[in-house]
């Protein structure tokens, strides 16, 4: 009990729900949540860009809140409910935001798209009617291709004046 080496393990068992499916896995303590999602669970829709919290490509939803999956350890989210981009059209039907991205051509290479969609999904019931607040929100996800205008058009086409209706 007083031996420090007995406290702490290099492998830890975690139980999480990913897109409605229970995952009960033994993972290395150093496994990043992004690698857990992609390599352990096998969901590669979540992309990895910078791996230090800056670009937002790896954004997923943990217990209702958008997070950078590259800047969390899988063990930190033990017991949580996780949603990734694969869950959005889980029933085969694109969400209004996904449709709007498609219709507005809000992507070119598409590398950033999953991150944008998950950020937007996480706040879809909040008030982003203030244009500056919306720009500030979108600035948390980097896009190297589009120049953001088509993304902004897609978002405002769904959120009208920028206010996110629940969809």
């Amino acid at each position: 009990m007083t031996d420090a080496s007995k406290r702490g393990e290099s492998e830890v068992r975690i139980k999480v729900t990913v897109n409605g499916t229970q995952e009960n896995r033994r993972v290395p303590a150093r496994l990043l949540l992004s690698d857990f999602i992609r390599d352990t669970v096998g969901l590669t829709g979540t992309h990895i860009g910078c791996e230090h919290g800056v670009c937002g490509a790896c954004t997923i939803i943990v217990d209702g809140a958008a997070v950078r999956s590259c800047s969390l350890l899988a063990v930190q989210v033990d017991g949580s409910t996780i949603r990734t981009v694969e869950d959005l059209a889980g029933d085969g039907e694109l969400t209004p935001m996904q449709k709007a991205f498609h219709e507005n051509h809000a992507m070119q290479c598409g590398f950033c798209t999953a991150g944008f969609l998950m950020t937007l999904e996480s706040v879809k019931n909040e008030d982003y009617s203030d244009h500056d607040d919306l720009l500030d929100l979108l600035s948390g996800n980097l896009c190297r291709c589009t120049g953001y205008q088509d993304i902004l058009n897609a978002v405002t086409s769904v959120w009208e004046t920028g206010t996110g209706p629940s969809s």
């Binding site: 420090a4 080496s5 406290r7 702490g8 393990e9 290099s10 830890v12 290395p28 303590a29 150093r30 496994l31 990043l32 690698d35 791996e51 350890l73 063990v75 033990d78």
Partner: peptide, 21 residues
């Protein structure tokens, strides 16, 4: 995996965290 290996311990209380540290 980017971080080097380490052991992970989820503290059960503040006292537990302090005594482990």
């Amino acid at each position: 995996m980017k971080p080097a290996s380490f052991d992970y311990y989820r503290a059960k209380s503040v006292d537990d965290a302090v005594s482990t540290l």
